[in-house]
Design a protein around this nucleic acid. Structure first.
Lengths: 225, 225
DNA sequence: ACTGCATATATTATATACAAAATACATTCC
DNA sequence: GGAATGTATTTTGTATATAATATATGCAGT
């Protein structure tokens, strides 16, 4: 009896620092905590009903992830994210998405191809229906399947971090972002390349996909002025 | 007077957690702390003559950098580093070194080309003289110049982390590593491509360079058995 | 009003204290 | 002897206390 229950309870303990880390990270990514905003330990600790210790540890982790900057003895503040920063990120991401997609073309399983196509369809449907939340979610899923199919854990870890930064940039600068219909075609190209196990065209398609995002961002930035 | 001195003193304050972080990181990379070894807070704190708090914070940072793993309520231990892990790292690094070198071909300055060639020569000299320490140091410098010339800070940050892991792997598995003379030729190819501003051949040369390292590692591993 | 300085306040940095869980070890019971 | 249980010890998790530094405030002197 109770085998399932006790198993779950034993494994899902999370130290406070992790809870706080995730909470703060999420808050930074969705823009609830704005760039430059100070993170004061007592204030955060009180708001969350804990002591300063786990808050400090969470901040140390955010610092290494690049979401906050620290000045010794002056405290932490939410990292700024310049256009140059995000261009750097996208430059790297184009390359790594290319790599991931090429690897996926070589290593993906039949089941994964099936679910990739499934998510591809769901994405297209949401875009047609102009369901933004849904389409974003499916877009993320789509790329996650590809990353997982690369069978390269280090690559997955890095790309996740890059995506996080792009997401954050969008929230800060492009609050009204909508996924354009061209994405459907680009996804189709990627799927075709993967399905036909053509690594080099998979690489090209994925790179192009990111480059187009980059251009879209540049264009949006120009219209903002 | 004392202008220089006071300036240095003012800027040079480092929180204990940073000192400890660097100390532990170095110890892990050079293999002084071995994979799987437990990191106990009181023990480390006593050895370093500080309290547990900064030690804990340093461990949190190492955790995010991937050098230690944690089990909640059981403590931290030095991360294992499997052959699969390092193959993943090298797969990513091949791609990113390619990117960095291609970008460098487009963005490098004349001064940087000069110092690149200078370091290239120093490296070759050390290899000829079979000065291992010197050649390793110059090899690192050589690649650092290229990374810097890419003008992409995010890329630099990621590649540094990847290099760190490769270095650690070498220490763990290949204690008797020597830089082979083929590296001289590979470096020359890279320099040629960069100097002639040929981004695509720079990319190819850098990727090949890493792939060769990968093969050398695989070969070394086989002879170890 | 403005500067220079003293002092108060706020904030981080480090150390210590206490609580909770994991581990090791002994003891009991079969 | 071996499993089960209880207890002591170790170790981590969290909270709090103290020290050191940075920032803000107020006031004298001009």
């Amino acid at each position: 009896m109770a085998g399932k229950l006790s198993k779950i309870n034993l494994n899902d303990y999370k130290p406070l620092r992790e809870v706080i880390f995730n909470t703060l990270r999420e808050a930074i990514i969705v823009g609830e905590l704005k760039p430059g905003e100070r993170l004061m330990e007592v204030q955060l600790a009180e708001k969350m009903g804990v002591s300063r210790t786990p808050v400090r540890e969470a901040i140390r982790m955010l610092e290494l992830e690049g979401l906050v900057n620290m000045l010794p003895r002056k405290g932490a503040h939410v990292a700024e994210l310049s256009v140059k920063d995000i261009m750097d990120v996208l430059e790297v991401r184009a390359s790594l998405d290319g790599l991931a997609t090429a690897l996926a073309a070589n290593r993906i399983t039949e089941e994964e191809i099936k679910s990739l196509k499934h998510v591809q369809n769901q994405f297209a449907n949401y875009v047609e229906k102009e369901n933004l939340q849904g389409s974003i979610k499916k877009d993320v899923e789509f790329h996650e399947i590809i990353y997982r199919s690369s069978r390269n854990d280090k690559l997955i870890q890095i790309v996740n971090n890059l995506r996080e930064q792009v997401q954050r940039f969008r929230v800060i600068y492009l609050k009204d972002y909508v996924s354009p219909k061209e994405l459907i075609k680009e996804h189709a190209e990627i799927v075709d390349a993967i399905t036909s196990k053509n690594a080099s065209s998979a690489l090209a398609a994925a790179e192009k996909h990111i480059r187009n995002q980059e251009n879209a961002i540049i264009k949006s930035l120009k219209t903002l002025r």
